[in-house]
């Protein structure tokens, strides 16, 4: 009887240690890798990089609708742009800073005119 208890105890101990080790391995050594993600699922640093590139692309070709659609992949375009300086891991280049300011200004003007100039 005592032997049986010891065996069951060892099985239980093995289960516990195995589950703990398996969880740690699955979380940190071989973590789940998401594939075919959308930009909103990028790491915040990469999201900031994405926003910066969208603003620079807008500086290259001022197509506001296109820039808005690209930013909308991350959420509200104006909010996304406003948050960029806080989220950006690397210092922004002068070109990027100017591009972001321009795009933000264009988006704000556009949304202001939409809200005031709509049909009654």
């Amino acid at each position: 009887m005592r032997r049986l208890k010891a065996v069951i105890g060892m099985i239980g101990l093995g289960l516990l240690i195995g589950a703990g080790a398996g969880f740690l391995l699955g979380r940190y050594v071989w973590p789940v890798r998401y594939i075919d993600v959308v930009p909103a699922e990028l790491h915040p640093d990469w999201q900031a990089e994405y926003v910066r590139m969208v603003a620079l692309a807008y500086a290259r070709d001022p197509d506001l609708a296109l820039a808005r659609a690209r930013l909308a992949l991350l959420g509200d375009p104006i909010v996304v742009l406003q948050q960029l300086p806080d989220r950006s891991p690397a210092p922004l280049s002068p070109e990027a800073r100017a591009a972001i300011a321009d795009l933000l200004h264009a988006l704000r003007s556009s949304s202001a005119s939409e809200s005031s100039g709509g049909p009654p």
């Binding site: 398996g22 969880f23 979380r27």
Partner: peptide, 20 residues
């Protein structure tokens, strides 16, 4: 006891991975 430990360890590992 060693065999019993291993018998518990293997399903424990699998269960841990499944949880993670």
């Amino acid at each position: 006891q060693g065999i019993a430990f291993l018998v518990g360890l293997l399903p424990g590992l699998i269960g841990g991975l499944y949880l993670a």
